[in-house]
């Protein structure tokens, strides 16, 4: 999968690119409008991460250009603006998603995956991790080819874990992904634990392995290592 990252802040650009490379994406970088424009004109990408505020132009104009040329790339806007208006403008112009800074890399990964699945759901609608298969179209989970019944939150949580396998995810990051921003006002994140335990129990009931490891009681890691 080829990703073009358009972001004028080099530090952020490099960190995102390093992370996505580790996640087996091929990353190309553009730190200004001109470069991004050239790359978009010449090459094809599966995903374009687009910062709106660029030193020499507006990301929205790039978005319009991409849509005008009918390029197939999925577009995720990275913006410092959190207001609904900007979001709606971006999505109306044909962006697939809109992520507000600051964001978690694991969250970005989840969103990229969702956009990829949306654009290429022919055959790629199953996310698999060993004996666990998540069908993202029917929203069902199979363990050892047997379906387990999960709630929407449990489904979202497991998919998030699998997409971010081998990564340490803090409770805050999980809560933010599953619920909206208000959740970070919680005094504790015990309610995550409840959902987690349900998933563990359901997977084990079909003979699956518990891949969810607790890290110092502050985070979790989905891993078979």
């Amino acid at each position: 999968m080829k990703i073009l990252i358009v972001e004028d802040e080099t530090d952020l650009l490099i960190t995102i690119s390093n992370y996505l490379t580790k996640e087996n994406y091929i990353c190309e970088l553009a730190e200004n409008f001109q470069k991004a424009f050239e790359k978009i004109s010449i090459y094809e990408y599966d995903i374009i991460l687009l910062d709106i505020t660029l030193p020499d132009g507006n990301g929205i104009d790039l978005l319009k250009y991409i849509k005008k040329k009918n390029l197939k790339a999925g577009i995720i806007i990275l913006s410092a603006k959190s207001s609904l208006d900007d979001k709606i403008t971006g999505l109306d112009l044909g962006a697939d998603d809109y992520i507000t800074k600051p964001f978690q890399l694991s969250e970005l990964n989840s969103r990229i995956n969702a956009v990829l699945r949306k654009h290429h759901f022919d055959g790629s609608n199953v996310v698999q991790f060993n004996e666990i298969k998540v069908d993202t179209v029917s929203k069902t989970i199979k363990v050892n080819d047997e379906e387990i019944i999960v709630t929407k939150k449990e489904y979202d949580m497991l998919l998030y874990f699998i997409l971010n396998k081998n990564r340490v995810l803090t409770k805050e990051a999980i809560a933010e992904h599953l619920w909206n921003d208000n959740i970070d006002q919680a005094d504790n994140f015990d309610f995550i634990y409840t959902h987690l335990n349900n998933i563990r129990r359901k997977i084990k009931s079909k003979g699956g392995t518990d891949y969810i490891k607790t890290i110092y009681g502050m985070g979790y890691k989905f891993s078979d290592r």
Partner: peptide, 15 residues
């Protein structure tokens, strides 16, 4: 928000 993003992303990587 941009420098905050950089810090946030770096912290996440440190974990």
């Amino acid at each position: 928000q941009t420098p905050i993003s950089i810090i946030s992303v770096n912290l996440e990587e440190m974990l």
